[in-house]
């Protein structure tokens, strides 16, 4: 079953190079699965502590700015659309439209990080960060809430940055014609990764900003 769609590409130095787009995508899905589990551990911890300290979590969540959270949600959701458009464009051979969409996606990613920066900076300004005296003066549940908040959104932010770099590399590839109408699996995989980043945010957003 696998042999038919494996085109052996002519390669200069050795014969191991083979191309199997379905295989590449399968690998990517498996990788995304591990990412989900990585966050899964965190969600488990969140669920446990939410159960243990439901009142304090409730109270602590009111300190987060729902408007910044909403703005970032809109940004990420839209960027998922633009990255999908970029892939669709490449499949149709519309290079310039793909470039445009990738640039927009990267712009959104940057905007997300800038927002995140202001959000975190404001919290820290008010002495809400792990180890700060103001935070330690609060109840245990609130301390844990903010501990989880920083770890989970921080880890997610790290993924946004990785996705951003990945998309920037893809942009260069598209410009250099290394990603084309017939060979776009790398872009597709990066798109999948970006959707994952989006997906995780869609869970983080209500858990931290909406359930108050």
């Amino acid at each position: 079953m696998s042999q038919s769609d494996q085109a052996i590409t002519a390669s200069g130095d050795h014969g191991h190079e083979h191309r199997d787009d379905i295989g590449s995508k399968m690998g990517m899905w498996l990788f995304l699965f591990t990412e989900l589990l990585l966050f899964g551990g965190m969600f488990l911890a969140y669920g446990y502590y939410r159960y243990l300290y439901s009142d304090e979590f409730h109270f602590a969540a009111t300190e987060l700015s729902t408007s910044i959270g909403t703005l970032n949600t809109v940004i990420l959701l839209t960027s998922s659309l633009t990255v999908a458009l970029a892939i669709a464009a490449i499949q149709k051979g519309k290079k310039n439209f793909a470039i445009f969409n990738l640039v927009v996606t990267i712009g959104f990613a940057l905007a997300f990080m800038v927002n995140k920066y202001f959000e975190w900076a404001a919290k820290m300004h008010h002495g809400i960060y792990p180890g700060a005296d103001e935070l330690l003066a609060k109840s245990n549940g609130e301390i844990i809430f903010f501990g989880l908040y920083y770890v989970m959104t921080g880890l997610h932010g790290l993924h946004v940055v990785i996705g951003l770099v990945l998309l920037a590399v893809m942009l260069v590839f598209v410009i250099q014609d290394k990603i084309t109408k017939d060979k776009y699996v790398a872009l597709e995989n990066s798109g999948l990764y970006w959707h994952l980043v989006d997906l995780i945010w869609i869970f983080l957003f209500p858990l931290f900003y909406l359930i108050q």
Partner: peptide, 17 residues
């Protein structure tokens, strides 16, 4: 490094977790 408290009982965390 940061004392986030998730596993620290003095901050309300749970080492058994």
């Amino acid at each position: 490094y940061f004392g986030i408290g998730i596993f620290d009982p003095t901050l309300g965390g749970d080492p058994i977790l």
